[in-house]
Nucleic acid binder design. Structure first.
Length: 236
DNA sequence: GCGACAG
DNA sequence: ATCTTGTCGC
């Protein structure tokens, strides 16, 4: 898909925070997702060489059958350290490079991490949504900010995630007997639609299929060689 | 000043 | 995120 790469990228936390404050007001919390949805994408990032190299994986699944139809894996030098609240500045560059190589245009992208459930309302899903001008949803495995009551144990139930008086997302019990997921709108979507989409992308596991496929692709790129396995005496 | 803190 | 063995539970 066509990607407009940023001409410059923040180098320091101070610059990154300033950019977030500029971009946050541009987020659109209205549904602008194509109907019907034909393709959903999942993105994930991983690291090698003690963080020196970033891996970004993106997988496109047909919807609603969730069959993988396109995928890309890229590796490039890491350009920003991990700082809570500034995750996008570390992972987005590689993710954009991966998206640029997709042949199939996704109608919506599910990201590993928060959307607007962020201190400055610009988590990685929101930031990515603005940069590629696409609907995005944040699917995080844990909380960054906000408070919430306990989530009922029943599968499919959720409670609002609140921060400074704002409803910034939902804590969703995607499966019974598992930790809940933190869902929040990224860009061009409402919380209700985000929750519905995550549920419709989920089958028998805690994480939606989109992120599971992306995780697997990202991991395949870091799998140990047979030689390394032998040297560690763990073959067979 | 003391915790909390997506991936 | 990554390192890293076995182990508890469905």
């Amino acid at each position: 898909m066509q990607i407009q790469f940023p001409e410059s990228w923040p180098t320091t936390p101070a610059e990154a925070i300033a950019l977030q404050q500029t971009l946050a007001p541009q987020i659109v919390l209205e549904d602008r997702i194509p109907n019907p949805i034909r393709y959903v994408a999942g993105v994930d990032a991983g690291f090698e060489d003690e963080g020196e190299t970033t891996r970004a994986a993106v997988v496109v699944l047909s919807f609603p059958d969730l069959t993988p139809v396109d995928e890309v894996l890229v590796r490039q030098p890491t350009v920003f350290p991990y700082v809570p609240g500034l995750l996008s500045f570390r992972e987005v560059p590689a993710v954009l490079a991966a998206l640029a190589q997709l042949k199939t245009e996704p109608d919506v992208i599910l990201c590993d991490g928060q959307g607007i459930a962020h201190p400055r309302r610009l988590g990685i899903a929101s930031h990515l949504g603005l940069l590629c001008d696409r609907p995005t949803v944040g699917v995080a495995k844990s909380r960054l900010v906000g408070t919430h009551i306990e989530v009922p144990p029943d599968k499919g139930t959720w409670v609002p995630l609140t921060d400074r008086g704002d409803r910034i997302g939902a804590v969703l019990r995607n499966r019974a007997n598992t930790k809940p997921l933190y869902i929040s709108p990224g860009h061009y979507t409402t919380l209700e639609t985000a929750i519905d989409l995550v549920l419709r992308c989920s089958t028998k596991y805690r994480l939606p299929e989109t992120t599971r496929y992306a995780d697997r692709l990202a991991s395949s790129g870091t799998a140990r060689s047979a030689l390394e396995e032998v040297q560690q005496g763990r073959l067979f």
